[in-house]
């Protein structure tokens, strides 16, 4: 397979199914190394499903998912993360039976350049204070920080983040914006599913607009102004 040198994710004709229901209808997209892209769309458009398909959480999927040039459509789910993927699920997925530190240390190492625990606690001081608390005793914002922090520790260099600002107070959303900007500066590749377009717009290089399981449009950061009508068409309810 040919691979553009810095292309880290390439989806080709990706279909996904939940049982009988056909949710993704042939998504094609590519993400370059160090890029921050968003998946935008209405509720139920298929953005979460796209991320879940990439990390192998959708049992029935067809087409092609290339991660760093490697085909993973048939790979067992636990092998995919080891290509350097970090996944932050929509429901955050903090484990109640683990304390904060155990949650943080849980995901296996998948790359060599992970942040140290000290660096992480520096980035998220709240987590350090509450390291012995039960994971789900944290506030929503802290849980979101933890869900993000634990994949930064693993050395993953591709981050798949699903609605990390959802339901959080504006100050915490601002803080997450700073964190993402810093991660981008450090060279992470980020795929961000966002409801909050204002948040997404400030940091993204490109926007993929998903509609009813199809890729409806791709808009670069500098075209956002000119193509405002596209956003209106696909994002307004």
């Amino acid at each position: 397979m040919s691979r553009v040198s810095n292309e880290v994710i390439r989806l080709t004709d990706l279909h996904a199914f939940y049982g009988e229901s056909h949710v993704l209808h042939g998504i094609d997209l590519d993400v370059h190394e160090g890029e921050l892209v968003t998946l935008l769309g209405r509720n139920g458009a298929g953005r979460t499903t796209t991320l879940r398909a990439i990390v192998g959480l959708i049992g029935h999927r067809t087409g092609s998912i290339m991660i760093k040039g490697e085909e993973t459509i048939k790979s067992p789910p636990h092998t995919i993360a080891h290509l350097g993927l970090g996944y932050c699920p929509e429901e955050r997925g903090i484990f109640a039976s683990l304390n904060v530190e155990e949650n943080l240390m849980l995901p296996p190492q998948v790359g060599s350049k992970g942040m140290s625990v000290e660096e992480i606690y520096e980035m998220f001081p709240n987590l350090a204070e509450r390291r012995k608390s039960q994971g789900t005793r944290l506030s929503g914002g802290e849980q979101q920080m933890l869900a993000l922090a634990r994949i930064l520790r693993t050395g993953a260099d591709i981050l798949l983040l699903d609605e990390i600002t959802e339901g959080l107070a504006p100050v915490i959303v601002d803080r997450l914006g700073e964190v993402l900007a810093e991660l981008k500066a450090r060279g992470f590749t980020v795929v961000l599913v966002e409801q909050n377009f204002h948040f997404a717009r400030a940091i993204a290089d490109r926007h993929f607009i998903i509609d009813q399981g199809h890729l409806a449009a791709v808009i670069a950061a500098d075209e956002v102004e000119a193509k405002a009508d596209v956003f209106d068409d696909f994002l307004s309810v």
Binding site: V55, G56, L57, H82, Y87, F95, S97, P107, P108, T154
Partner: peptide, 15 residues
């Protein structure tokens, strides 16, 4: 413990 709670997410982390 994590596998008891949410095996699919644990697997997505590479376990």
């Amino acid at each position: 413990r994590a596998g008891t709670e949410n095996p699919t997410l644990l697997q997505a982390f590479g376990v």
